[in-house]
């Protein structure tokens, strides 16, 4: 073994040890690294009322109720991860991206009558599509944004805005394609 290859193996060994140490550490702390907990985690192990937690999940379609208490808007909505749902109460202005079917992270604490949020963050997904394409997918019944993520990317990512506009103007063709609810739509649990 030459000196150079000995140095190389030494460095490889050091990097491997360091990597293993980092991996073990991240594993140990992974419950602290997660940015939010899911509704089913909250349901099975409710956090104490004085602890601030971040609750993440999808806004259940049809669950959003907006009221006005004097000047401040108050919103109530259910957040689900597909298995459990938690009702969130939030006073204030919701972010632009907030809608039914959108993923959100609510910062607040678990009270007796549900989750009281002091801040609501919108979490957008990794799909990017023009408005026209989204409209065309909705019209053709392939996707309802209120019930979850869009269909597989290969079915729409090469659709141009022109294609989508054509689809939208020729609405009659869509009628032959009966609307179907996406398979991913979770049934919101009653609470």
């Amino acid at each position: 073994m030459t000196r150079k290859s000995r140095r190389l193996w030494l460095i490889i060994a050091c990097i491997a040890c360091l990597g293993a140490a980092a991996a073990l550490m991240l594993r140990a702390f992974s419950s602290d690294i997660v940015f939010f907990v899911t509704p089913s985690q909250v349901e099975t192990k409710p956090p104490p009322a004085d602890r601030t937690v971040r609750l993440g999940g999808m806004v259940v379609a049809g669950s959003v109720k907006r009221e006005k208490h004097g000047e401040t808007p108050v919103a109530r909505f259910d957040v689900t991860d597909g298995q459990a749902a938690v009702t969130v109460r939030y006073e204030g202005i919701l972010p632009d991206l907030f809608r039914e079917g959108q993923s959100v992270v609510a910062v607040g604490s678990m009270q007796k009558d549900g989750f009281v949020a002091s801040e609501v963050l919108a979490k957008h997904d990794e799909t990017y599509m023009p408005k026209e394409v989204a409209e065309a997918l909705k019209k053709s019944g392939k996707w309802d944004p209120r019930f979850g993520p869009p269909p597989s990317a290969a079915s729409w990512n090469s659709m141009t805005v022109q294609d989508a506009k054509k689809d939208l103007s020729g609405k009659n063709s869509a009628a032959s394609n009966p609307a179907q609810t996406p398979a991913s739509a979770p049934a919101p649990a009653a609470n």
């Binding site: 997904d125 990794e126 799909t127 990017y128 599509m129 023009p130 394409v133 869009p150 597989s152 990317a153 290969a154 729409w156 990512n157 090469s158 659709m159 141009t160 805005v161």
Partner: peptide
């Protein structure tokens, strides 16, 4: 592994 979840007009 998968198709890009982005419209080709943005890709």
């Amino acid at each position: 592994t998968g198709a890009p979840t982005m419209s080709s007009s943005m890709l």
